[in-house]
Computed example of a mutant assay.
Amino acid sequence: MTTHVPVNNTSNNDSTIAKQSNAQKNDNNSATQKAIIEVDSLSFSIKNNAILKNLNFNVGSGEIYALLGGNGAGKSTTLKTLLGFNKPTQGSVKVAGKEVSKALDFVRTKTAYLPESATLYPHLTARENVEYFLSLADINKTDEQINAAFNRVALQEGAWERPMQTYSKGMRQKTAIALAILREAPIFLLDEPTSGLDPVAIDEFNQLVRELALAGASILMVTHDVYGACQVANRIGLLRAGELVGEFDAPENGRIDTEQVHAAFAQRGA
């Protein structure tokens, strides 16, 4: 059965929702021991302007968690805090059991960040890009291992030796994920990963994300795409003006109800 925290239109109800979200967090304390990403009472402000407000959620091994919200909801700020670019005003963020602010190098070695548009060198081929970025991390991989990663992300073999400037966005995303796989990063942070992709590329990308999760990766994606989040996520957190106002769980062997999430998302311009 899908778990849903109702989202209503009054400030009193918003307060109730926040309390319910906190209650859910307490109910999941036993699961937190297994969490790979732990966000605990996280708040972040800039010049007394609250951007994130008491966020509580976690992502387990093999789980896909989608943080869903509109522009300005605080999605990218949450990712930047997980990457150590923002220092929490209150609360804490842990990755693989380590406080981000105290173990930044460790956290970044465990984390693969995929922005909306993967930043790769356009004049280099996919192989050259991958080899270059692996060398920066002092990681050595054989040609066979690189080929296997390209095959795993379904990057066409005929494109491996072509310059990136000839690639579509979907192909660039696949190359970036192949690089993350070769780095053996167990945690993926995805920022609007399917924005600008055509329907076929979105389906391919979602299937790849599911396969990574099945292999044990922890995946946190932020998005404003209700349909895409429902198609791929095990859990969805609805973010509104920096607050987590609801969560949705996928039923066993099923997907989260798109209409239910859309109705909640649409309220008050979430």
Rank of each mutant, 00 (worst) to 15 (best):
V5D: 05
P6Y: 07
V7D: 03
D14R: 15
T16Y: 03
A23L: 05
K25T: 14
A31Y: 04
A35P: 10
I36P: 07
E38K: 14
K47N: 15
K47G: 10
N49R: 10
A50G: 00
I51C: 08
L52C: 08
K53L: 00
N54L: 00
L55H: 01
N56Q: 06
N56G: 04
F57N: 04
F57S: 05
N58R: 01
V59R: 03
V59K: 04
S61K: 13
G62T: 11
G62L: 03
G62N: 13
L67M: 12
L68I: 08
G70F: 00
N71E: 04
N71V: 05
G74Q: 02
S76D: 10
T78Q: 05
K80L: 05
L82Q: 03
L83C: 13
K87N: 08
P88D: 02
K98L: 02
V100P: 03
A103P: 01
L104Q: 11
L104K: 14
R108A: 09
T111R: 02
T111W: 00
T111I: 08
A112G: 15
L114C: 11
P115Q: 04
A118P: 11
T119A: 13
H123S: 14
L124D: 12
A126C: 02
E131T: 15
E131G: 03
Y132T: 09
Y132M: 04
L134R: 08
D138C: 01
I139E: 06
T142A: 03
D143V: 04
E144G: 07
I146F: 09
F150D: 11
A154N: 14
Q156R: 12
G158V: 04
W160S: 05
W160C: 08
E161M: 03
P163C: 10
T166C: 03
T166K: 08
Y167K: 07
Y167T: 11
S168W: 06
G170Q: 07
G170V: 07
M171A: 09
T175S: 13
I177K: 03
I181K: 07
E184I: 02
E184F: 01
A185S: 15
P186R: 13
I187Y: 08
D191K: 06
D191P: 07
E192Q: 10
S195R: 05
P199V: 12
P199K: 09
D203W: 00
D203H: 12
V209S: 11
L212Q: 15
L212W: 07
L212M: 15
A213W: 00
L214R: 15
L214W: 04
G216P: 03
A217K: 12
A217V: 02
S218G: 06
S218N: 05
L220G: 09
L220Q: 03
M221Y: 10
V222P: 11
T223G: 05
T223Q: 00
H224G: 05
D225T: 08
V226F: 02
G228K: 01
G228L: 00
V232D: 01
I236A: 08
L238I: 13
L239Q: 10
G242Y: 07
G242P: 12
E247Y: 08
F248Y: 15
A250S: 14
P251Q: 10
P251R: 12
N253R: 11
D257G: 03
Q260P: 01
A266Y: 01
Q267I: 15
R268Q: 12
G269Y: 06
